[in-house]
Nucleic acid binder design. Sequence first.
RNA 1: GGCGACAUAGCCAAGUGGUAAGGCAAAGGUCUGCAACACCUCUAUCACCAGUUCAAAUCUGGUUGUCGCCUCCA
Length: 465
Amino acid sequence: MKLYNTLTRKKEEFVPIEEGKVRMYVCGPTVYNFIHIGNARPMIMFDTVRRYMEYKGLKVNYVSNFTDVDDKIIKKAIEEGVPASEISTRFIAECKKDMDSLNVLPATTHPLATEEIGGMLDMIGTLIEKGYAYAIDGTVYFRTKKFDDYGKLSKKNLDELEAGKRIAVEAQKEDEMDFVLWKPKKDGEPFWESPWGNGRPGWHIECSVMSKKYLGEEIDIHAGGEDLIFPHHENEIAQSEACNGKNFSKYWLHNGFLNIDNRKMSKSLGNFFTVREIGEKYDLQVLRFFMLSAHYRSPINFSADLMEASKSGLDRILTAVDNLKHLSGASNTNDKTEEENANLKLASEFTDKFEAAMDDDFNTADAVSSIFELVKFTNTNTSAENSKEYLDGLFNQIKMLCDILGVIVDKEAIILAEDIEKLIEERQLARKSKNFARSDEIRDELLAKGIVLEDTREGVKWKKA
RNA sequence: GGCGACAUAGCCAAGUGGUAAGGCAAAGGUCUGCAACACCUCUAUCACCAGUUCAAAUCUGGUUGUCGCCUCCA
């Protein structure tokens, strides 16, 4: 299994620190609103990474935080006249609902920043002791110049950063690149006591602390959006390695951005979509499938047309699986024949292809194409004559591959109301007596109720519109 | 100014040295009472220029264009 490591800018063979186990940390969202579809990309893609690793037999300890103390949360709380904790609690719950809709597995641990303040105070204290941090008037800064490796992830060096001077440097800092570990409280803001005065943590320290607490000082994979490379991940490395004296994370994975109609998503452009909004128009599986259609490191463009195309593509897979279920249910023979056995062997090559794609830096686009090829193979190599064992074998293979990608293929059985069943029966009778006016009328009637009828080679089938 | 990414058919998108996967859309056909589903057929010399090589979308140099990070941001 190879993966692209932002730290080395190369694809590397994945070798976990501890054999058979993976310690993985993914930076989670700041919970001040419903998550947007850009937030959903790392959730979906790294969830897929996790699923694939688990499929390969690795035990993954997957940690993803919620940042629940932050300027934007506080701002929203003031606007609504409620405590900040109420805002964060609410949107954590909403985020978890969205994750569920996207079929993103819950992390092994979802730590909250506000519940880890003690660990942050400890780490900041250690950094001060070691000379990597200093306190001035209630603010604690990290001394970037003291950490020699600063810039190793983003490939920036401090001198160049200084050359391009920026605005409004806080005068009290020793160096303009120094960043905040602890900031003093302001009126109306949540705060915690600390040796440097009441206040709250800076953004970066939480991830260093939570990663250490739940995964240890050295971890295998740290992941997030590419915009986090600098300064967030660079600062995490500085904090963790300065504090622990060990290499922080072996591999760094970053997903590309999601654009809307070729432009960066922003509220001012009016092209801002929450996952919840997309969920009103589509099964969110379609959004997941859409994201899987491109490599996770590439930028991806979102549009209504592309969602429609993804929906059509996904439907093709779902239809094939559905057909297999119908055929299997109607099959008269159980044991597979030699020919069927040979076919299953041929079909297994698509699984090999799928794995080869995923082994190559999680090439989901290529992996999906092997599912389509398997679907085509299935469509052309099945009939009512096949044995149940054979049909189920194909069904299980497609289901397994889709499961790895987090695509749910096995629709839960929905019980039709009795009157609808009667209508289907009546339509069949009408068709037999060539009363097509009546049969079409019934089909339209059911369509109005959201049930689509299809007269297939496997018999009459229905599905939700 | 610094760092980096990308440019493949109408659209999306794999492919990093041996002569272009897959999906969507469109078109024609088979099947079907019709529709839908399914199946068959059909669509590219890979931004441009130069070079390396027996051989390049794939390597090197250059040109043009698009975009990201350097500031809160997935």
